[in-house]
């Protein structure tokens, strides 16, 4: 039993919670860009928390199902068609053989998740099905078939409601990065008070911030980085590393987004404005 990819859309991959090993071998963690929405999609269907979903970017993904099941398409807001008729997102949808789903467009947010009852099956590497070039397939291609186990039971539980309030903030929690203290008082103040916006450069590896701040810091000895690390380049550009981030980097790490803030940031579109909310988590001592 499988779905057939009729149109790939802008960028679609299989994602789960990502890898819990492999970083010492240079392998990124990967996993869903927005964990909150990904988990919701699985939760609706009563799936295991780490069941693999299809993650898609903004628009154009079209899939055909060859056998019955239930799915949930989780998005912040979007136009989604089942056999040319608009359907509700964030709910349980019954699928028959031959049904076609089209993600026409997302109205809010960047990433959406299609969960199927009991998860999609695909090749795993180090315990995760998350796509990453060099480990697995890079992204979904036209005519790809993705396997799932057909399900003809009842949908089971009542459908929970997606809490959209979660996303209604433009204030993102950050912690001080390892090199934050090296910034001047003025820069620290600016980071904590100024408004910033996202550039159009957005992908699973990194989101760039539009505004530049005059950089006074030298590059660092290459050190570990994580999803959510904000790097500060010699040109004064700030780069927020996302789920497919490399495991090490040589730019100063000035801020670190909280887990929740990574989810929120992932859904913010190019040109969206936001502020950093600096939270004390770390205490240091030399």
């Amino acid at each position: 039993m499988s779905i057939n990819v009729k149109q790939t859309g802008l960028y679609a991959t299989i994602q789960d919670e990502g890898r819990t090993e492999g970083m010492p071998q240079g392998i990124p963690i990967s996993g869903a860009m927005d964990f909150n929405l990904y988990r919701f999609a699985n939760h609706v269907l009563g799936n295991k928390e780490n069941s693999a979903c299809i993650e898609f970017y903004q628009q154009g993904l079209k899939l055909e199902f060859d056998s019955p099941t239930f799915i949930c398409i989780a998005v912040l807001d979007g136009e989604i068609l089942l056999n040319d008729e608009q359907i509700e997102s964030n709910s349980i949808i019954k699928i028959k053989s031959g049904d076609q789903i089209l993600i026409k467009q997302l109205i809010e947010g960047n990433w959406g998740y299609i969960a199927v009852k009991d998860g999609f099956q695909s090749g795993a590497f180090l315990g995760s099905q998350s796509f990453y070039k060099a480990l697995t397939q890079h992204q979904l291609k036209k005519s790809d078939k993705i396997i799932y186990v057909s399900y003809e039971g009842v949908s089971g539980a009542d459908c929970p409601i997606l809490n959209l309030e979660y996303y209604k903030t433009s204030v993102l929690d950050v912690f001080k990065g390892p090199e934050f203290q090296k910034l001047s008082q003025t820069l620290q103040y600016q980071l904590n008070n100024a408004e910033f916006s996202l550039s159009t450069s957005q992908n699973r590896m990194a989101y760039e911030i539009q505004e530049r701040l005059d950089n006074e810091l030298e590059e660092i000895t290459t050190g570990p980085v994580l999803p959510g690390t904000v790097q500060y380049t010699p040109e004064g550009k700030m780069i927020a590393l996302m789920r497919d981030a490399q495991v090490t980097g040589g730019y100063p790490r000035i801020l670190q987004f909280s887990e929740k803030a990574i989810n929120l940031l992932s859904q913010k579109r190019a040109k969206s404005k936001f502020k950093f909310n600096l939270i004390e988590i770390n205490l240091e001592k030399i």
């Binding site: 390892p178 690390t229 770390n282 030399i286």
Partner: peptide, 21 residues
């Protein structure tokens, strides 16, 4: 060696030594 212990995020800690390679 001199070092610092620094919490990076909810689940990670960096131990960084103040020394040349």
């Amino acid at each position: 060696h001199k070092f610092r212990i620094f919490q990076i995020n909810e689940r990670s800690i960096l131990v960084e030594f103040d020394e040349e390679i």
